[in-house]
């Protein structure tokens, strides 16, 4: 997994609440057995509209997606973060996320930043007002800032998740450090509740 430290990226504003994973990547694009190659499916239905944000030249190459509340609700498909990453996004900024999408994002090195509704609102205004609006996301310092540093916002993140992202660590390897503990637990459970095995 790619490390995530500091990201200085162009921001694309997606001004809709409750964007579900069926919209992020419609099911007709799920038909792959690989983890890559999903960029074409990203927001495929909405991209048919020439006015859609990702079709506007000013947002070409965007790495940060600015969104509204409950982003990523619906189906658990991990293709949603895969498609965002494959398209070039490294981070999403929104006031809230659906749980499964939120988890899936971390596991693929896509950082879901949570800011308050007011902060997100402010960013939408900035983004609309200034073509080429970029933000600097500093994971180590847990901050989102405008490139001139005039605007600085702080965000919270789980220390463990941060550690994994900053170091680009594979979660399975991390878990297997506890292999003995898992085996012990399993043996105990098997003795106590044999019908589950």
């Amino acid at each position: 997994m790619e490390k995530f430290t500091v990201l200085n990226g162009l921001v694309a504003p997606l001004d809709r609440a409750n964007v579900d994973t069926d919209q992020i990547i419609p099911k007709q694009y799920l038909a792959s057995i690989k983890r890559t190659g999903f960029a074409g499916g990203l927001f495929a239905d909405w991209r048919k509209d020439p006015g859609f944000v990702l079709n506007q030249p000013r947002y070409k190459g965007a790495q940060i997606l600015l969104a509204r509340k409950n982003f990523g609700c619906g189906s658990s498909r991990e293709h949603a973060p895969w498609a965002l990453i494959d398209y070039g996004f490294r981070s999403v900024i929104a006031p809230s996320y659906a749980d499964i999408f939120f988890n899936n994002s971390y596991k693929n090195g896509l950082l879901p930043v949570v800011l308050t509704e007011a902060e997100v609102d402010r960013l939408f205004h900035e983004c609309n007002a200034f073509p080429g609006f970029r933000l600097v996301i500093d994971l180590e310092r847990q901050s989102v800032a405008s490139t001139d540093g005039a605007l600085v916002m702080r965000f919270e993140i789980d220390p463990f998740r941060k550690y994994c992202l900053v170091n680009g660590l594979d979660e399975i390897g991390l878990t297997l450090r506890h292999a003995d503990k898992i085996r012990e637990f399993e043996a105990r459970r098997k003795a106590q509740y044999p019908w589950y095995f």
Partner: peptide, 20 residues
């Protein structure tokens, strides 16, 4: 509960889910 594909791999490999 539902999990993503990375978690499917994680559970296959470790029999555990990392969660809160």
């Amino acid at each position: 509960h539902g999990i993503g594909t990375s978690e499917v791999e994680h559970v296959l490999a470790t029999q555990c889910l990392v969660t809160k």
